[in-house]
Computed example of a mutant assay.
Amino acid sequence: MLLANGPPGSAPQDQAARDARSTGVDLLTREGLGAALKGADVFIDATQSPTADDASADFFRRATGNLLTAAEAAGVQHAVLLSIVGVDQVPDLAYYRAKVLKEELFKAGAVPCSIVRASQFFEYIDEIMSWTAEGDNIRLPPTLLQPIALADAPRAVTDIATGAPLHGVRDVAGPDTLALDELGKVTLTARRDARTIVTDPDAGPFAAVSGKALLASDGAHIAPTHYLDWLTS
């Protein structure tokens, strides 16, 4: 069973909890949750909070608590959580603190779990740049990232979900380490976008990240797709 919804800010909180609204499953009200988990051996939780502020912690506390309680009652044998590489290394970001809380709930739950931390998706680079775009300039910090193609991440998650529970964490990342401002420059060049990347260590939420906090740890699964290949394909 896969639980997923859109990125933060894409919907009101009650809507975001409806991981599969067309099937009537709601993580906040628990509507349809037991029936959806019945007979499932494993579930993958890729749900996100609808906001990136302090309210995200309450959302995860409620939704995750309901999910894990229902999974235990249904006899699920493996709980897989999709999280973020380096999430516990950035305490100044409220959303990252909330994701750490969610990881802790999984670890403390009765269902054996695997936590898969993925790096930032290639497909989100445009959104990240939009946060600090001002006219013809885009301000970005030189934060080190190891982004991954969205298509590569599910394969790695599925491999883990179909195996024995890790009872721990595994990172999943792309093959290239690039500074965010450099990612912006590469992106604009490949698209013949005339805007200018301005390196600004204080620009946007990723300015709160220091050093190698968002790079994959030793033993990580490294996906095959390079960012430039993805851009030009």
Rank of each mutant, 00 (worst) to 15 (best):
W131H: 12
G219W: 10
P112I: 03
T143F: 09
A94D: 15
D88Y: 05
E31Y: 04
D92E: 15
A52Y: 03
A108E: 09
E123G: 00
T132P: 04
G135L: 10
Y227S: 08
I160N: 04
V42P: 00
A208L: 12
G204H: 06
T189L: 14
R117L: 11
T132F: 08
L3Y: 07
T199G: 10
A40P: 10
H221G: 01
L37I: 03
Q89P: 00
F59T: 00
H167Y: 10
V116P: 12
A118Q: 09
E123S: 12
M129H: 10
P142W: 06
R61F: 03
D200W: 05
R192V: 12
P224A: 08
E72V: 00
A108R: 02
S233N: 15
E104D: 14
H226Q: 13
A213S: 15
L228Y: 09
C113Q: 14
A35E: 15
D53G: 12
L214C: 09
D88W: 06
R61L: 09
V85K: 01
G168C: 11
L105N: 03
S114R: 06
D92P: 09
A52K: 02
G75N: 07
V172P: 13
P165A: 02
D171E: 04
D53P: 00
A40V: 03
G86I: 13
F106P: 01
Q13K: 05
L231S: 05
G168K: 12
A17S: 13
D193K: 07
A151D: 14
V80L: 02
L215M: 07
S119Y: 04
A70H: 02
T187A: 09
T47F: 03
S22W: 15
F206K: 00
Q89R: 15
A70D: 13
V116L: 03
F121T: 02
D92S: 11
A71G: 06
K38R: 15
M129T: 09
D159N: 13
G24I: 00
L101I: 07
T187D: 06
R191Y: 11
P7K: 08
G86H: 03
